[in-house]
Design a protein around this nucleic acid. Structure first.
Length: 290
DNA sequence: CGGAGTGTTAGTCG
DNA sequence: CCGACTAACACTCC
């Protein structure tokens, strides 16, 4: 599923082709992602222009010309595919690279048509994702609920420490908590913990200043690197450029169970449920210090 | 074939 | 308030 680097990649790619375009058609094949009346949804989008595309955490925000906003959350299996003739730009949960005749797929629920002939498809196998048009006030309320976003100037060590607080829970659980830190999901949480040399199950309350600093720095480094590589194509994710994300080549622990640790060359990567999620780590260089 | 596991997160329960 | 757990859904893997 798309995490911050993947959603950011789609955002950038779609902005290039959608900003300034007018929505001339909205087709709803399945209304499951639409949490309001379909009529209202269509009406609020029809004949509006896309002014800009933004993002908070894993949520995409399309600015419309009437100052309302289309929110798109892909959750686990959502995909956004833009097609204009032979040109395909895709992003989201894993797919084979689409060809123009593959669309719509059996999981396409919504199709938008644009004034230049382009079309945007929203696919979502498991139907967890959502689409919502909201006014500025509601949009700001939703954005305000998100925690600090790594890679912005808000993401300072002081703010990071404030987010961690004196929580009893594990560092992994905090990294995954969107209310505290926006955009990190299961893959990057594990990669960040590995880069920091910290066990994902380490209790936040017991972490030293040095350990906190390591996780803080690793968060920025890993996410920046992942964006530079257009995200991770793992099983489900494909980026919005017709090509696959390739950060998967750089994954150190995620889905490497049983393989030798790439850092210490001694430990074999272990998987265990931590914070309710499958977690991958090296039991030798990510020891729980107590 | 059956059952467990899967990138998210909102909601519930203790 | 905080944290742990689960449901929403559909497919893949063992």
């Amino acid at each position: 599923m798309p995490e911050l680097p993947e959603v950011e990649t789609i955002r950038r790619d779609l902005a290039k082709v959608l900003v300034g375009k007018k929505i001339t058609g909205v087709e709803v094949i399945n209304k499951s992602p639409i949490k309001e009346s379909v009529e209202k949804f269509k009406k609020s989008l029809l004949n509006k222009k896309i002014k800009d595309i933004g993002r908070i955490g894993k949520l995409m925000i399309l600015d419309l010309s009437d100052d309302n906003f289309l929110l798109i959350h892909l959750k686990m299996t959502g995909q956004l595919i833009y097609r204009h003739g032979h040109q395909i730009i895709e992003g989201g949960h894993n797919l084979p690279v689409f060809k123009e005749n593959d669309l719509p797929t059996k999981y396409t629920w919504v199709v938008w048509k644009f004034n230049d002939g382009g079309q945007l498809y929203f696919n979502d196998m498991r139907k967890f994702g959502y689409l919502k048009v909201v006014d500025k006030e509601v949009k700001e309320k939703i954005v305000a609920k998100y925690g600090i976003e790594p890679l912005t100037k808000n993401f300072t060590l002081a703010n990071f420490k404030k987010a961690l607080g004196k929580r009893k829970t594990s560092i992994k659980s905090v990294l995954l908590n969107q209310v505290l830190i926006a955009g990190i999901g299961n893959i990057y949480a594990d990669e960040i913990c590995f880069a920091a040399g910290i066990h994902p199950g380490r209790s936040v309350a017991e972490m030293s200043e040095t350990e906190i600093k390591k996780v803080f720095t690793a968060s920025k480094v890993i996410l920046k690197k992942a964006i530079a590589h257009k995200g991770t194509t793992f099983k489900d994710y494909v980026n919005a450029h017709g090509g696959k994300g390739n950060f998967s080549d750089y994954l150190q622990v995620y889905k490497r169970v049983g393989e030798k640790c790439l850092r210490c060359k001694k430990g074999s990567i272990t998987s265990k449920k931590i914070a309710g999620r499958s977690s991958h780590y090296c039991p030798i260089c990510q020891k729980v210090i107590s």
